[in-house]
Nucleic acid binder design. Sequence first.
RNA 1: AGCGGGAUGGGAUAGCCAGGAGAUUCCGCCGGGCUCAUAACCCGGAGAUCGGACGUUCAAAUCGUCCUCCCGCUACCA
Length: 729
Amino acid sequence: MHEEFPTDSPAVVTCGLPYANGDLHVGHLRTYVSGDAYSRALERLGQSVAFVCGSDMHGTPIAVNAAEEGVDPETFALEYHEQYEETFPKFNVEFDNYGHTHDATNTEMTRSFVRSWIDNDHVFEKEIEVAWDAETDQPLPDRFVEGTCPYCGETARGDECDDGCQRHLEPGEIEAPVSTITGNPAEYRTRPHKFLRLSDLQEYLQGFIDRLEGTDNAKNQPREWIEGELQDLCITRDMDWGIDYPSEGAAAGEGGDDLVLYVWVDAPIEYVSSTKQYSERVGSDEYDWEAVWKDHSDPDSEVPEGGEILHVIGHDIIQHHTVFWPAMLRGAGFNEPRAVMACGFVNLDGEAFSTSRNRAVWADDYVESGLDPDLYRYHIVTGSEFTADVDFSWDGLQERVNNELVGTLGNFLYRSLLFAERNYDGTPETGTSETVEGEIEAAIEAFQEAVDAYRVRGLGRAPVELAKFGNEYIQRHEPWKLTDDDPEKAAQVIRDCVQLSKAIAVLMEPVLPGKADALWTQLGEPGSVGDVGLEAALSSPPDEFGEPEELFEKIEDDRVDELNRQLAERVEAAGGDGEDGPNGETDGPNGETDGPNGETDGPNGETDGSKDGADVPDIEPITDDRVGFEEFKHLDLRVAEVLSAESIEGADKLAKLEVDVGVETRQIVAGIKQLHDLESLPGTRIVIVANLEKSELFGVESNGMLLAAGEEADLLTTHGDSAPGTKIQ
RNA sequence: AGCGGGAUGGGAUAGCCAGGAGAUUCCGCCGGGCUCAUAACCCGGAGAUCGGACGUUCAAAUCGUCCUCCCGCUACCA
C-alpha cells in the first residue's frame, strides 16, 4: 500500500513527548534513541526527514506537583524542559527541533485544530458532572481527584485507573471522589464541557487501522477499541494550567469559559508544531511542514495524502496514537500517520524500574559514568526486538560492548586500517573484489529491510554482521603471510578490508553516530558520515589516511563492580527507611513519560500521612444519608455455617468458602485469606448477604457476600445458636 | 479468570507473520589454528525429542486445535 523508503515525500519521525514532571532514566531513553536511530537510517536511505519532539508541559500532574513545591506550573515544567533539552544530545539524540507544548507555536496550532473541529461540526457541548472541592470552591479535574474506578473498583485517579484496569476515565466517571487538594470528599457539580465526537470518525478509523504500518503491537491492539463503540472524547478541563479552549464568542486567541484543553489534545499537536518550527527555521524550500502534515488528497477522498508520518512511542500510549490522534488529525483536515512503532519496557536486571525505590539508572548516572553514549545506544537497540522488553544492566552492557563492539567490530576495523596504513599508507591501489562487494550489498539490503519492517534492532546488527564477515575474511586470507609471497593478493585483501570498514562506518551511523563519525575521520573522509547516503558504502575510500585509533575500549570489571555497587547502595538507602506508598509504586514500565498517563510521581506519591494512619483508627462518621425501612428489607441477610474454606490460587486476599444456608449450600468468595486461618473456619457461624448479585472473581463464582467488621475483617456471627438459613431482621 | 508476552543445545537471545535439510547471535565448556589486531581474531567439537498432545501438509520450530508451565498487568466484593 505504501511505497518503500525512500519516497519522494518528506517524512517526519516523532518520539512520544517526555512529560515535564521528573528526571529521565535509561528506560525512557529507549524511545528517543530508537527514534533517533530510525530517523538517521531513513536519512542514509536518502529520505528527506525531520526528527522532532518536545516537552509535554500541561496536565494536572504538573499542576499538582508545582503546587506542592509552591511554584507556578510553567516555571516547574520549564525547568524539566530545559533539562531534557540538555540531556538528549548527551545520548547523541539530535532532534531537528525540540519545542514544548506551552510555546506560542503549539498554543496557536492547538487552537486552530480545535477551531477546525468546531467548523467541521465535530465538537458538541454537554453538561457533565465534575468533581468539585467545596472548601476551596474549585473544580477538580483529572488528578486533582482520586476515588474508585467504576470499572474495577480500584483506587484510581480522575483521568486514569492507574493501579487498576488502566482505563482512561472520562470526567465524572470516578466514584467516591476525594479532593487531592484538601482531602475532603469531593462533590459533583454540573458543568458544561466540550467533546470531540469520535463516533463521527469511527468508519474512517477502521479504514485507517488497515492502512497503518509499524510494529505489530501498534497495528493489532487498537482493533479492539476501534471495532467497539467509540466513546466521545472530553477535550476540556476546569483548570487554569493549559491551553485555553478557543471560545467561539470571544475574540480569536482569547480564552473563554475558564476551560483549558485536555493535555492529550495539545500534546500530540506538538508533533505538528515542532515540525513547523523546524520548517520555519530552515525554510520551506528545504523542508515544508505543510507538505507532510496537511491533507493533500481530493476533498472527497477517504484517504488523506501527505508526507510520511512516523511515531515512535512506548506501548503504553498506543491507544492515544492509533485512535485519538488520527481522529484529531482527520477531524481537522490533516494527514494521517503512516506508521506507529511501539517499543517494550526496559527492565533493570530483569525487574521493572522502580523510581520510588530509586531502583533506576538515571540518564545522569549514565552520563556521569563517562561511558560513551553509543555504547548504551547499541546495548538498548540490539538487546532485543523493538516490541519486546529489553534488559538493561551494567553487566549486560559490559558483555555486549566487550564482545561485540570491541572484539568483533572495533578489532576488525583496527587491524584492517592499521595493516593498511603500515603497509600501504592508506588504501591499496586496486579495486574491491566481487565477493566483498557482494557482501556489502547484502548488508545494505539487510539494512533496507530493517527500515521497511520497522525493526530498529536490525539497524544495529547490520554493521556488526559485516565486521564479523570481515574478521573471517581477513583470517581466511592471512594477508600478513602474503605481503612477501603474493603482494598483489595481499593488497587485494586489504583493499577489501578498507572497503568493508568504510561500509561499516556508513551502516553503523544510525545506532552509533558518534563512533561512526570518528571512524569516518580515521578513514580520511571529509565531513560527516551523517551527510552521505548508503551508496557511499561502495564508493572508494581516500587513498591515504593516518594511523587508526582503537574505536572502542573494553569496559573493565572493576568499573562494572563500581557501577553496580553505586546502584545497590542507592536502592538500599531508598528502600531501607523511605517508606513507599502502600503499593510500592513502580514507574510506568518503560517510562514513556508522554502525556499524563504513564506517569507516576516521585517519592511523595499520593498518600498524605493522614490517610494511611493505622495508628489512630478514625471512626468513620455515620452517614447522614438515611435509607428507608423498605430499602433495608431488600437485603436478605442470613445466618450461614462455613463448611469449607480454601485459598484461591493467585489471589492475595481471596478465599473460596462453601457455606450452609439451611436451604442450600452456597459458594462465596471473601477477601479474608490473610486475616483468618482458613483451616479453622469450618463450623463457624457467619452472616451473609444472601441476595447479592452473583459475580465471578478469579474465575470463581461468588454467590453472596460474607459480612465482617473493620480492617481486620472481624467476622459477624450470632450470639445464640441460630440455625443456618435463619433470616436476620 | 481476563488481556498481553514467553517456553528454542548449560545461560541469554534470533528464526515463526510469507512452512522446505532441526536453527541465529552472544556467553560458557572442550580441542585446534593464527600471530596483522584491544590476552584479540579464526576453525572444529560436545550438547537440544525447537514446553506437551493431536491435526493440516509431500514437508511444521514455523499453520490450526487442545493442554502444561513461566512472566507482566489486571481482577482481591471487608
